[in-house]
Nucleic acid binder design. Structure first.
Length: 439
RNA sequence: GUGAGCGUAGCUCAGAUGGUUAGAGCGCCAGGUUGUGGCCCUGGAGGUCGUGGGUUCGAGUCCCGUCGCUCACCCCA
């Protein structure tokens, strides 16, 4: 048997009895960390509420065409990053790689355009892209996104950007940069694209391999290519800004004006093009620090043609998505996080021959009284139980000791100073509520 | 898809040049107090050294395959 054949056999053997492990690019979020997730999600919800955005929950998978048509055939996401599969009836489905296309589909399906505009929505949930995982990039990742349909007013561009910043600030992130650009409408972009093609075509050999392809498929993307050779070629060419039609120019200038009035500082970023085809006019990114090379925390823009392209009426739209994994990561070192809360208020310990059923009842009464209560279930010594109580951060321990139990009493111990008192079993919930609120 | 680094106890890691029973700190369990936490002391449990093969008298250590992780490219959240 060749070495290679052996290797394959080993791999196959492993596939038959796979070790328990989350698949590549996915991960488990375990208790202390899961509370941080609940916290950011709560912040996102509260910020949205303040701005008048309401939650929409769309399916995690959709017909693949929702994304191929929505995001664009020539994008990296559609070309190589989608999780595609067929269900048992042969339907072509995809795990959602981003949120906007699905929200637009729902917007159309439920004819929300027939109601009062603008329709302002937000979503929270996992997205899926088949990419090589690295710092701040997972195959299943969590996004918080916002979409507003039905307003072409530059004011909503400013509002959305301001919402994004409010969110970052609310989670305690103070170091970020807003990058802003306008990529015009199909009309002015076509003119610009034509200029790019005529200027670059004669020197196509000097472009990198992928930009050579982009020249045909998506020339705008050459602008944000990081290859020095490509940059060199693009550098002397005029920016998109000078090609904007009068409407787009007016929009672009007004957005900047409003941002100024909101006191939001930004950097014009003529190279910011973004990887999804549906964007028009305003595009922006909020980038963070300390994130390695995946530094885009939040990105979005206007997509005035998307609803129509997906078969609906001509309704303008704008939105952004924020990567929560990255956000949490950039917060990890800082002090923006809330202190880890104690896991419990009260620990019920058992010493000696005290009936477990009665102790369960006691704990149950405390819990019904709204007191977070933990009890001994492992049969440890009292010493060990107190140690556990301490570790859990319990402020009080109810000691159900054999001696006092026989007299209808239990001992209450305040962990901070070790002060103890004996209390009638029936009065434990009331007394503990008192003691807890005292502090 | 491409490149580089790394896989040793639950966690963080040490194990030059291949050589006896693979170690530490933290954590966990127990004892020191037959009913009292934090500090301290003592003891204990816990390891297919990712995995398959090769070289060798002998492999955690060297070689190859493979899987995984990490970082970077690409791209994006």
């Amino acid at each position: 048997m060749s070495e290679r054949a052996r290797g394959e056999e080993a791999a196959a053997g492993k596939a038959v009895a796979p070790g328990a492990a989350a698949v590549r690019g996915t991960r488990d979020i375990l208790p202390p960390e899961s509370s941080r997730w609940q916290w950011v999600e709560g912040v996102a919800r509260r910020v949205c509420e303040r701005y008048g955005y309401r939650e929409i929950r769309t399916p995690i998978f959709e017909a693949a065409t929702v994304f191929t048509r929505g995001i664009g055939e020539a994008t990296d996401i559609v070309e190589k990053e989608m999780y595609l599969f067929r269900d048992r009836a042969g339907r072509e489905l995809a795990l959602r790689p981003e949120g906007t296309a699905g929200v637009v589909r729902a917007f159309l399906e439920h004819k929300l355009y027939a109601g009062p505009l603008p329709v302002k929505l937000f979503y929270l949930g996992p997205m899926f892209r088949y990419e090589r995982p690295q710092a701040g990039r997972y195959r299943q990742f969590e996004q918080f996104g916002v979409e507003a349909f039905g307003s072409a007013d530059p004011a909503i561009d400013a509002e959305i950007i301001s919402l994004g910043i409010a969110f970052l600030e609310a989670v305690g992130l103070d170091r970020w940069e807003l990058r802003l650009n306008s990529i015009g409408c199909p009309t002015c972009r076509a003119a610009y694209r034509e200029m790019l093609v005529t200027e670059l075509s004669p020197r196509r050999q000097e472009l990198c391999r992928s930009c050579e392809q982009r020249l045909e498929r998506n020339p705008l993307r050459i602008l944000d290519c990081k290859e020095p050779g490509c940059q060199l070629l693009v550098e002397p060419l005029p920016g998109l800004e000078s090609y904007l039609c009068s409407d787009c120019r007016a929009h672009w200038e007004t957005v900047q004006h409003y941002l100024g009035e909101l006191g939001i500082s930004y950097r014009k970023y003529p190279r910011l093009v973004r990887g999804l085809d549906y964007y028009t006019r305003t595009v922006f990114e909020l980038v963070g620090t300390g994130l390695g090379s995946q530094d885009a925390l939040l990105g979005g823009g206007r997509y005035d043609g998307l609803v129509e392209a997906m078969g609906g009426p001509s309704v303008p739209g704008i939105g952004f998505a924020a990567g929560l994994d990255r956000l949490l990561m950039s917060l990890a070192g800082g002090d923006g996080l809330p202190p880890a809360a104690a896991a419990t208020d009260v620990y019920v310990a058992r010493a000696g021959e005290v009936p477990m059923g009665a102790v369960l009842q006691l704990a149950e009464r405390l819990r019904r009284a709204g007191i977070r209560t933990e009890l001994e279930l492992a049969g440890r010594s009292l010493k060990a139980q107190l140690k556990v109580a301490d570790r859990l951060g319990a402020r009080f321990v109810v000691i159900a000791g054999e001696a006092e139990w026989a007299r209808g009493l239990v001992t209450l111990r305040r962990m901070a100073d070790g002060l103890q008192e004996e209390v009638a079993r029936t009065e434990v919930p009331g007394r503990l509520s008192e003691l807890i609120s005292e502090t």
